[in-house]
Amino acid sequence: MNILVDENIPMAEAFFSRFGSVVTFAGRGLSPEALVDTDVLIVRSVTRVNAALLAKATKLRFVGSCTIGSDHLDIEYLESRSINWCTAPGSNADSVVDYVVCSLCAVDDYMARLLGGGRLGIIGYGNVGRRLAERVSGLGIGCVAYDPLIDAQSDPRLVGIDEVLHCDVLCLHAPLTRTGPFPSYHLLSLEQLLRLPKGALLLNAGRGEVVATGVLLELAALRPDIQLVLDVWEGEPVVSAELAARCAIATPHIAGYSLDGKFKGAAMVAEALANVLGVSEEQSWPSEVAAALTAPQVSVQDCGEPWQAAALSAYNPKEDHQRFLASLGADDPGGAFDALRKHYPPRRELSRCEFVFDGAVDKAQLNVLSALQGHR
């Protein structure tokens, strides 16, 4: 069995070699000719899997995406050809939540503002949105969410979009949809975003097309008091350098790029493939994967409150921000965008980290840190 796997899926051999011969490919460079003898295709969100790509893939039986979204898969076409498919919903949700809370720790005093009685709003209440709500609620932060696809009676946090727009921090985690009763494409208008409170923060770690680039540029010009944290962009991998320069934090679609999240995504797809092939799935992850996931010890650098210092010692998104801004001056910024993702340094989820402090830390601070990690 011939298996093609995106080169940015770590330890692909460990996860998929027991099913057949594994060959890797560059996510944006896959051609129809490369799929002529392929039985299984494993992708990430940068590969558009549609009729044009699969025109010569006559042997293809299975398409798996090691990511949470499905907007890059033409599901109707896959099902018309009886090609099994799957995604990995929730696999990197904790990684994205870590990105949010670390960004709030890194930009001005937003986390302290929320802890002092501010409110966080969420648009898109799926795996990421729910876990973010649970994480900040564990910190004692007020949180509301908007998702028209979910019955508002099912969760007390669900409110109308107007209420969400009055929060101190607004986080976008909606999937990209262009059809249906509530499409998310260009969901938020300039008029709506201008309602955000003074000094608010707008963070998008969902899909870039949920807010138009032009709208965000106008917002930055009209409301310079509003801080922007953007991990996703219209037109990726070529993005607006002007918009990136306006951001407190700008990163190249890496919010979900923790090592833990990548491994969870690959494991979910491997399990789905095993089910399709009718073979027994291993009860534990490959030994080399388990070894790579040993809990890291993080030495906490002295920078502010102990819980804040710990979070930023584990992951400081401003380091990604600096690398990303530098890449925008390259001759091929689109290629540089993909290179940053391909060579992204290993990052672990906060919940997996063991923090080492130089001095004593009181119980109240440790409780905040534990909640920040998502421990209950």
Rank of each mutant, 00 (worst) to 15 (best):
M1Q: 09
L4V: 00
N8L: 01
P10Q: 12
P10L: 09
F16Q: 03
G20A: 06
F25H: 10
A26M: 06
A26E: 14
G27Q: 03
L30K: 02
P32H: 04
V40M: 03
V40P: 05
L41Y: 02
I42F: 02
S45G: 03
V46K: 04
V46Q: 05
A52Y: 01
K56H: 12
L60F: 07
G69R: 08
S70W: 11
H72N: 08
D74P: 08
Y77K: 00
Y77C: 04
L78H: 11
I83H: 09
N84Q: 13
C86L: 00
G90Q: 12
S95G: 12
V100L: 12
V100P: 10
V101K: 04
D108W: 00
M111A: 10
R113N: 10
G117W: 06
G118H: 08
L132K: 06
A133Q: 05
A133I: 01
S137Q: 15
G138A: 10
G142M: 00
V144C: 15
I150V: 15
D151A: 13
Q153C: 08
D155E: 13
P156E: 14
V159A: 11
E163D: 15
V164M: 05
V164Y: 10
V164L: 06
D168W: 01
V169R: 05
L172E: 03
P175T: 09
R178N: 08
T179L: 12
T179H: 13
G180K: 06
S184I: 00
H186L: 01
L187M: 15
Q192F: 11
G199S: 07
L201F: 08
L203T: 06
G206A: 11
V211Y: 08
T213I: 08
T213A: 00
G214D: 10
G214K: 10
G214S: 05
V215H: 07
L216W: 05
L216G: 12
A221D: 15
L222N: 04
P224D: 07
L228I: 07
P237L: 02
V238G: 03
A248P: 09
G256K: 08
Y257S: 14
D260Q: 13
G261W: 07
A267R: 14
N275I: 03
L277I: 04
G278D: 13
V279C: 12
E281F: 14
Q283H: 09
Q283P: 01
V289T: 03
A291Q: 14
T294Y: 10
A295Y: 14
D302S: 11
D302F: 01
D302K: 00
P306C: 08
A309V: 03
S313Y: 05
N316R: 11
D320S: 03
D320R: 02
R323Y: 10
R323D: 15
F324T: 11
G329C: 07
G335C: 03
K342G: 00
H343C: 05
E349I: 08
L350Q: 03
S351K: 11
S351P: 01
C353A: 11
E354N: 07
F355H: 03
F355C: 07
D358E: 13
D362C: 12
L366K: 08
L366S: 09
V368N: 01
G374C: 09
